[in-house]
Design a protein around this nucleic acid. Structure first.
Lengths: 105, 105
DNA sequence: AAATAGTACCTTGCATTGTATAGTACCTTG
DNA sequence: CAAGGTACTATACAATGCAAGGTACTATTT
């Protein structure tokens, strides 16, 4: 699989999923992995970066199934960023489609 | 614009456009730029790589509008690669869509 | 004739981002 | 107490696009 397609998209997925509800890292890996092959080494740096950029706030919560989980909660700035990226993605997909097939239409 | 989305996709666009008919570098920049912002520094290295990988063959042709153009013609291996990438892209877009919205459906 | 702009090609160094790999540590179950 | 699943972190590396610069030909403007 061309993993280059992943670039930027994983970050958008993380934002979109945290926008739905608070999430922790491992959960995000599991959720995204259902469809897109990724590893933990991909998600955690993204979470750190997005937190640094004030798109997320974090809090710890104990779990009965292992060590405490670090939950990520979206900030208003994160919400804005999410919407911006989702719009850009939709636009991008349609633009690519035009380049690929639009010429003959 | 999130240019990270571009990763891998530009190469696919180049392949798809050369699959339609022989193309030269500058033409590809112009064509793709209509929808996706790219520069020559992006295209020429891709053309060199794809030629090296035997997906393209090249020939020169004089032009009345400037220096000679280096045309790229697709090989059978290139055709295969193009189809492979187009399929992966379609699959990828649908997978991303699932991660973004599929959970609630 | 010189300057400018458009066409056309090429190369180098950088930034970004995902991957591989490894390590730490907690909890449950056999 | 060993194994496996849960959970977080860090480091080194690879791939790719971009910015910036360079060369050179043709046509148009000054």
């Amino acid at each position: 699989m061309n993993s280059q397609f992943n670039k930027g998209v994983i970050e958008m997925c993380v934002l979109a999923l945290v926008a739905q509800k608070d999430r922790y890292g491992y959960e995000l890996v599991e959720t995204i992995s259902k469809k897109i092959e990724i590893s933990e080494g991909t998600i955690y740096p993204i979470l750190r970066r997005l937190t640094q950029e004030s798109f997320f706030e974090t809090y710890l919560k104990e779990s009965s199934e292992g060590p405490p989980r670090k939950y990520y909660r979206m900030t208003p700035a994160g919400k804005e960023q999410t919407e911006k990226l989702l719009k850009e993605w939709a636009r991008f997909v349609s633009d690519v489609d035009f380049v690929l097939y639009g010429e003959s239409k």
